[in-house]
Design a protein around this nucleic acid. Sequence first.
DNA 1: CGCAGTTTGACCATTACTGACTTTATTATA
DNA 2: TATAATAAAGTCAGTAATGGTCAAACTGCG
Lengths: 158, 158
Amino acid sequence: MAQLSDNIERFIKELMSEDCQIELRRNELAQHFGCAPSQINYVLATRFSIERGYVIDSRRGGGGYVRILQLRRRGDENLLCTLLDQVGNAIEEDAAHSIIGQLLDLDLITENEANLMVAATAKNALALPVNAKDVLRASVLRSMLTQVFRNLEGRAHT
Amino acid sequence: MAQLSDNIERFIKELMSEDCQIELRRNELAQHFGCAPSQINYVLATRFSIERGYVIDSRRGGGGYVRILQLRRRGDENLLCTLLDQVGNAIEEDAAHSIIGQLLDLDLITENEANLMVAATAKNALALPVNAKDVLRASVLRSMLTQVFRNLEGRAHT
DNA sequence: CGCAGTTTGACCATTACTGACTTTATTATA
DNA sequence: TATAATAAAGTCAGTAATGGTCAAACTGCG
């Protein structure tokens, strides 16, 4: 069953399909969904994090607002470097998923490819008798990321 | 006397006769049969395994669910099992490449997908200070193989 | 009896949601 | 201009709602 959070996420993404930057009132949105205002923060934190390619900017007090900005880095020459940096030497499962999600959002990989990458970096895929999953995940993910960009070379540039 | 597990299996299969993908709440189902929730896991593990052509997908937390997907392409589950067997507990790089090559030959994955799988199972991708690369490669490859067949479900049937 | 298959329960992990309290900005007012 | 009132938004710990794991206990059959 779709949770409140999922609905709010969908709602916000719908708004953002027009423009990659939107502004909203936290309380209004909460009222619209009949939930606690802090629920909005929860959604922002879990679905619109920087790891997922979003930046939140807000202001309190009278006339306050919450601004959501989607990073558009598709043409970024350094995207691969940025992502490799983000991965670093060790990375947790959630963060890895976020990075894969960004590639998907940016249309750099297909859904099937994303699924494969998720599968390769899943906890279960790294079932080793050593406690170094995060390190391992990072190394597998880095290798795949590099390949993603290699794959793109064979594609028309936009 | 029909075992509880058999009843649960029948019940689930009944649900699936409509649609080859269903979603259920573990606790609800357990309550319906008046058993421990973990009983459901037992049934899933023994009756809806990969070997039998099913893939399980689940989520914890509020609004959690268990999704059961039945592979529809006849013969696919056998192929998957064969491949998983071939992979086994440990596999060398060459052998892994050959399996990926088979999938490509059979048109079950795209070239880009094959590239990704190769990248994920490359020697360099498994740079760990332990001497267990073959074991690790096997576990990563098994996870990806299963995903390949899951991906196929979204594709037109032949 | 002994073993394979079944069932359970205790404990764990993850995700969603809320409310009380805090912080900051604007506006009205003495 | 201070100051108080009001109007936002942020934080965080606590609770609820799920599902997962694993070892121990149980059961039926050869």
